[in-house]
């Protein structure tokens, strides 16, 4: 049983949705789904502002499927599934989610049983603990660097490959000068900037400057051996 693969972590949460209807007369599942559909994508996603989020998703498990010729199972609740793959301790990640996406969480999880008591990051962590499903086997086909390292590396690879193409065949003296200037501009060691913006799905958007974006203001996290 493992929720981790190196420093990469897997979080699987099934939150049962409340029975009955909302004040607007909609089923909780319908209302939650409508809310999810309205969330902005990419750089606007609530997850984009949470440091060290590799990938994350929400989906609604409204029933289990009948396999035919077997015993017929059906769920008595709808579940909101949250699946996250992130870097570093899960508690830290959950705290950050609460900090950066609190309004979305409140709007969404109001539809779920047991969330009405949640008032703080600690309460949120406790709530998640009650809904969490352990990951049996977590396969990491990528790597487990901090997200900021990954994003900076992607930025650099793009910039450096372009540099190599533009300076092919240059004499060493000019090549050296050009590379020194390149390194000064792109700062390979500086994880904060310039880099790719998390969640960007065009090259233009990836390098667009967004000063007020949260992750760049966050510490990198560093490698820690936590016990979660």
């Amino acid at each position: 049983m493992s929720d981790r693969s190196g420093q990469a972590r897997s979080l699987v949460v099934l939150s049962p949705l409340r029975s009955g209807v909302t004040a607007a007369g909609e089923s909780f599942a319908y209302s939650a789904r409508r809310l999810l559909q309205g969330l902005p994508q990419g750089t606007g996603s609530p997850f984009a502002s949470v440091p060290d989020t590799y990938m994350a998703r929400w989906y609604l498990l409204d029933d289990v499927r009948y396999q035919g010729g077997a015993r017929e199972d059906h769920l008595n609740n709808r579940y909101l599934a949250l699946l996250v793959q992130h870097y570093g301790p899960t508690d830290r990640w959950l705290d950050n989610l609460w900090q950066y996406a609190q309004s979305t969480l409140q709007a969404l999880y109001t539809h779920a049983w047991g969330f009405d008591q949640v008032r703080s990051a600690e309460g949120w962590r406790h709530y998640i603990e009650r809904c969490r499903v352990p990951t049996g086997y977590f396969f990491n086909g990528s790597n487990d660097e901090p997200l900021m390292t990954q994003l900076k590396a992607l930025y650099l690879r793009q910039q450096f490959t372009a540099f190599v193409m533009q300076h092919q065949g240059l004499p060493d003296t000019q090549l050296q000068a050009a590379f020194v200037a390149w390194a000064a501009e792109h700062q390979p060691d500086n994880l904060t900037a310039p880099t790719w913006q998390p969640g960007a799905d065009t090259l233009h958007e990836a390098t667009a400057v967004q000063a007020d974006h949260a992750p760049t203001a966050q510490p990198a996290g560093g490698r820690t051996d936590d016990g979660d």
């Binding site: 990938m55 992607l154 969640g199 960007a200």
Partner: peptide, 19 residues
């Protein structure tokens, strides 16, 4: 219903190569 990737431009191969 809602899916997020930190690097929609990159594949797993790209991330590994870059790192």
């Amino acid at each position: 219903h809602h899916y997020y990737s930190a690097y929609p431009l990159a594949t797993s191969n790209d991330v590994k190569a870059a790192c």
